[in-house]
Nucleic acid binder design. Structure first.
Lengths: 212, 212
DNA sequence: TTGCATTTCAAACGCGTGTATGAAACTATC
DNA sequence: GATAGTTTCATACACGCGTTTGAAATGCAA
């Protein structure tokens, strides 16, 4: 119990390497070298490589989800139980965007690890991923409280599109940068969040107006 | 020259397997088994596994891009050189969505292969991918002609978001299905296209209105 | 048919991977 | 300080991968 220094060293090194280079390119030998421990330590402490990844994913998704739920809670309290729809979207996409884009200093390995996990979809993670849906349902519920007159299906699509825009912006920032020849400022994280939230809100409210 | 039956059999088998299972899970032995050819045939005809993937990617991106540009051309001719913005978005996301979702019968291995390629980002493809930006610039140019009063930066973001929504809908249709408990109909491809196009148009025009 | 180039085939090679082993080093309790 | 339990370490193992090899089969012109 004293010496789980080794355990945490492995977890931190693995998180950082996976966040930076993805799952496919990182071997156990890379991890133990970065953690400065012996090769056999991973199997001793975690059982297998897959179990290490699984543990990492579970603990890190708790971190990300807590951040999002904190923002959501703040927004709901500010509105007396009914958060503004833009605040809900901001709580949904803000933490991940801030953790993955923006200045290096305040990037979080946890957020970038989670994005990798959602991109590369490696077997040990795929099996646990169902919990994410439960987490998102909380946001769907908050949206329903915020916009009680809207069709549920529209709300689901709105949530889906908001995540899509955030996720893809992180993933393909390089392409957008080349396409716009640098004119889309990817360092202005708050500006990006505002843009995504704005489009998401408009997608819901504008569509409702178009129907009426 | 007579017997490039083997070549095309390998290409077709590889395309189908990669489309179905992704790059990480498909080995050369899987491919040659599906194509019913000898293991060494891949190296004989293509040089290496990476060169096979690269050739596949180049030829298939021609197919997808041609489809998109055809729709764009039709839309521009219908508008006398200026396509309607919704038609541009439909040309951008329609072909891929139709090829990846919808009834099994009319799904195209080419479209699904391209989506895999854009998701998994395997080294041999990453190096060629710059051409995609040139292809997208044609759509950016069409958008500029369609909405000459808009800021270029907004157009780039609009294009980026449209692709993001389409791409993520293909990729994560499973999650949306679970989240909505089946209420988001993922077989209604035209409905999905309309939704994405609608949001994309609204994102551009609504934002402009909000400024004014 | 003969001869040469092309294509196929079974088998093996080298390499990197995750995992297992058993001895050595350490830690803590009596 | 001896002993039992925990953790580290160097090393080796088994396996799957992409690739190579050299001989056999095939195609085709003279």
């Amino acid at each position: 119990m004293a010496a789980d220094h080794t355990r945490t060293a492995i977890l931190l090194a693995a998180e950082r390497l996976y966040a930076e280079r993805g799952f496919a390119d990182v071997t156990m030998r890379d991890i133990v070298a970065a953690a400065d421990v012996n090769l056999a330590a991973v199997n001793y402490h975690f059982g297998s490589k897959d179990e290490l990844i699984a543990e990492l994913f579970v603990s890190r998704s708790l971190v990300t989800n807590r951040e999002r739920l904190n923002e959501l809670k703040t927004a709901e309290e500010a509105g007396g139980g009914r958060a503004r729809i833009d605040a809900i979207f901001a709580a949904l996409v803000g933490p991940t965007l801030r953790g993955c884009l923006g200045p290096d200093k305040q990037r979080s390995d946890a957020a970038r690890f989670m994005i990798r996990a959602s991109i590369e979809s490696v077997p040990p993670i795929r099996k646990i991923k169902n919990r994410e849906v439960d987490h998102l349902k909380r946001f769907a519920a908050a949206m329903r409280r915020s916009l009680p007159d809207h069709d549920d299906v529209d709300l689901f699509w709105g949530l889906h599109f908001a995540l899509a825009m955030a996720h893809q912006t992180i993933r393909d920032s390089e392409r957008l940068n080349k396409l716009s020849e640098g004119r889309c400022d990817l360092n202005d994280v708050q500006g990006i969040i505002n843009r995504i939230v704005g489009v998401s809100v408009l997608a819901l409210t504008g569509r409702a107006k178009a129907r009426a």
